[in-house]
Design a protein around this nucleic acid. Structure first.
Lengths: 205, 205, 205, 205
DNA sequence: GATGAATGAGGGTTCATTCAT
DNA sequence: TATGAATGAACCCTCATTCAT
């Protein structure tokens, strides 16, 4: 059975991968509704019928793109547990920005905001706010408490937009500068958490 | 000529208004591609052909919705030029939040982000970042300089997201609390500007 | 009553005329289906509702254009009854070509052929073959007898196409040359009538 | 690959053929603008979406109908190179008329004249004047020289109209009679060429 | 008589999905 | 597994016609 994988199954896997890759690029370049299944299939170099075959629906493909992206992004997160929290946050964003700089097609996918109609909102937010959530965890902030969650969402947007603009700028500033800028924004956000919910214990950086 | 306005022209104007109103609600509730011209017309209670008649195309209608929204939002901005800058910023956001709280359908229109494909990006951003730009002007910050522009965009997103969440929360915190939270975020943003472009003269609040 | 004509009625007549004029140009430039009532009205500088008002339907307007054209063309036909038949034919075509050269918008109206769907075929043919019919009458040929009618239609087409090309040519040959060419074609056509229906008494030119 | 042709590909080809067939009939019966894509599809017994699938657009389908028609008509042209020119001309028209008599739906397609708006003018003329051009070549007449081209167009029209009428007549005269009639018309046309451009060497029949 | 707002049927086209091969 | 032909619902838009003013 294992051996068979080198035959049909392997090629099926390959097709699936090609579709995901193509879909990532397409969904990044245009809003969901403007990407056709045929576009994706053509980019992937396979028959459009295979989208149904492998992902059921167009939405299934989109969802899988989000999940895969999420997986890949989180894989790059590495922080030194010994270091100070502030430093860990910086490590996190350095990794994040580095990854995005190398895969700038992701910007298009992550930034524009959810199409409310796509029943993928949760998955979408999971990807989009992945890094900010990690920061929140690092800082020991609650993810669910209203005030904290509110600022988290807000900060995640701010970070995304900043990253997006940074990627689009011709002479990109140094990563470290952007990291410091993010820390500035984060500092503001932490104050905001305190203002909004004094009951939360907010660390400083 | 003036007299005619009370007749047919007034009714045309009325129809136009009904279409804009309906469109605002529809485009807020679903992404552009999912709103059909017929939906809008039905909501407005008129024939769908009138969209062409009054706005040329679906996009023309959408554009007009954005413009009208922009117009209305900016109309509410009133600040006391005698007051301190920080106070003026607070006045601005208090007005902004008050207006949005009374027209929470706008949130859906403004937040999701542009469909890159709609050739209305500029107009869209004009509305979405209207308030943040006003703040920038108030603080004497440049709108065009890269670093400043970048943080402006980022801060605008943060403020939008915060506002959006606030509107969605059941027991909405007091407006004044949110204003202070925004000031916290703005403070962080101002630091960010300094970090990114030390050449800019950034005031404190 | 006569005096009133200088008031509303005269202006109504004027509007009618403007619509006919505009329609002539429009229907010449594009096939019937591509000319919109609004196009015509805009060209005429009046409200589009007036087409219904004055002509009932779009087709009514078209029909009226054909009739009016027919009327005008036939008005120019003058032949000297004393002259030889051949000379009269030449006079006829000289008049015809002169008129068309001065109203070359007619070419577009007359040449393309009838849209079979327009219930105006008869009227259309009446205009298109007006001159050729006149020739047939001049030569004492029957209009109804199958063979004669067939060749008449054929010759009318040939003459139309020739005229059309002539009008489109930059350095237009002299009218008299074209007249002789038409006589050549006519000569051929007369032979054809003899071949097709030996019972007909066909004169020579 | 070759084997696949007997399966799905053959059925695709079949569908294409059915659409072309249906389109030929529809476009013959009514002007282009009055034939709907759905009409064609319904006549062909397939879904209307297939028009896009196989021909891209309505115009693509129309164009293909013209091309296919042209192809088929020209296939029937066979002349004996040993025979006298006049005889070859007769052979040509005999073949042409025979084919049309067996496919009288073509008359409706070819005769009405081009819709100037359809960007298919060239292709259209190619079909409509196919036979006349062949005659011109046979007689060694130039296709491009203005005078010759003018008369060619004119003669082609005459021949078409004659053919069209002939097909519509109940008791169709013998083909050979029509051929002689065409030769009569052609004789006139040849004189016309001489009159128009004495520099051209025009043979006799 | 004149206006142009309003109507709504109907057009061409797109495209997710299905399914026989 | 893979193909791409086939389906048909749904879209945006056009436009002849009506009619209140």
């Amino acid at each position: 059975m294992e051996l068979l994988r080198s035959g049909r199954q392997a090629s099926a896997e390959e097709t699936r991968r090609k579709l995901l890759e193509a879909a990532l690029h397409q969904f990044s370049a245009r809003p969901y509704a403007e990407v056709t299944v045929s576009d994706v299939a053509r980019t992937a170099g396979v028959a459009h019928g295979l989208v149904s075959h492998h992902f059921g629906h167009k939405q299934g493909l989109y969802l899988e793109v989000l999940r895969e992206t999420n997986r890949r992004i989180r894989e790059t997160y590495r922080t030194d547990p010994e270091a100070a929290v502030g430093e860990q946050v910086r490590q996190l964003y350095r990794a994040h920005l580095t990854y995005l700089a190398e895969h700038d097609e992701l910007a298009g996918l992550l930034l524009p905001g959810t199409d409310a109609s796509l029943q993928v909102g949760e998955e979408f937010d999971a990807v989009r706010t992945a890094c900010a959530r990690e920061v929140w965890l690092l800082l020991g902030l609650p993810l669910e408490r209203p005030g904290s969650a509110m600022v988290l969402a807000s900060f995640a947007r701010a970070a995304d937009e900043l990253t997006f603009r940074w990627l689009g700028v011709c002479g990109r500033p140094e990563i470290d500068v952007i990291v410091e800028v993010l820390v500035d924004l984060l500092t503001g956000a932490l104050h905001a958490v305190r203002t909004l919910d004094p009951g939360i214990d907010v660390p400083s950086l």
